[in-house]
Amino acid sequence: MTRYRIADDVAWVSEEELDGGETPTAYLTRLPKGPPILLEGSGCVVWLALADGGTLDEVVTAAAAMSGTGPEEIREDVETLVDQLVIIGVARED
């Protein structure tokens, strides 16, 4: 069973840790020379769910709980974003 997690060479911080803004926001980059990436709103929620690692079902369930929606409502969007994060190298499959 495939598990997902943040790649080892990624540094990130969420807006919540900086100033508690209204829109969930995460700033991330691959070290040492990756371009900065900004994830806002639902993208940040998926990133925070991914931070704990887990299967796609676990990431979907965590993101749904954080956003107050049903897992079935967001599954396709979460899967798409997780796939994109893997492609650009900030998340990885184990």
Rank of each mutant, 00 (worst) to 15 (best):
M1S: 06
R3F: 04
R3M: 08
A7H: 00
A7I: 02
D9K: 11
V10M: 05
W12F: 15
V13L: 13
S14N: 12
S14G: 13
S14V: 13
E15Q: 15
E16V: 11
E16A: 15
E16W: 11
E16Y: 10
E16G: 14
G20R: 11
G20N: 07
T23G: 05
T25V: 08
T25S: 05
A26G: 01
Y27F: 15
T29K: 11
T29M: 12
K33L: 12
K33T: 12
G34W: 02
G34L: 00
P36E: 12
P36V: 12
I37E: 14
I37H: 11
L39F: 11
G41P: 03
C44Q: 04
W47I: 01
L48S: 14
A49K: 08
L50N: 03
A51T: 06
A51D: 05
D52I: 06
D52G: 15
G53P: 08
G54S: 10
T55M: 14
D57S: 11
D57K: 09
E58H: 00
V59F: 02
V59Y: 01
A62R: 07
A62H: 01
A63E: 03
A64E: 07
A64K: 03
A64S: 11
A65Y: 09
A65C: 03
M66V: 09
M66Q: 13
S67F: 12
S67N: 14
G68E: 06
G70C: 07
P71V: 01
E73S: 12
E73L: 13
I74E: 04
R75N: 04
D77P: 02
D77S: 10
D77K: 08
V78R: 00
L81Q: 04
L81V: 02
L81R: 01
V82E: 01
V82S: 02
V82W: 00
V82T: 01
V82N: 03
Q84W: 06
Q84S: 13
Q84E: 13
I88F: 06
V90H: 00
A91N: 00
A91I: 00
E93F: 02
D94P: 05
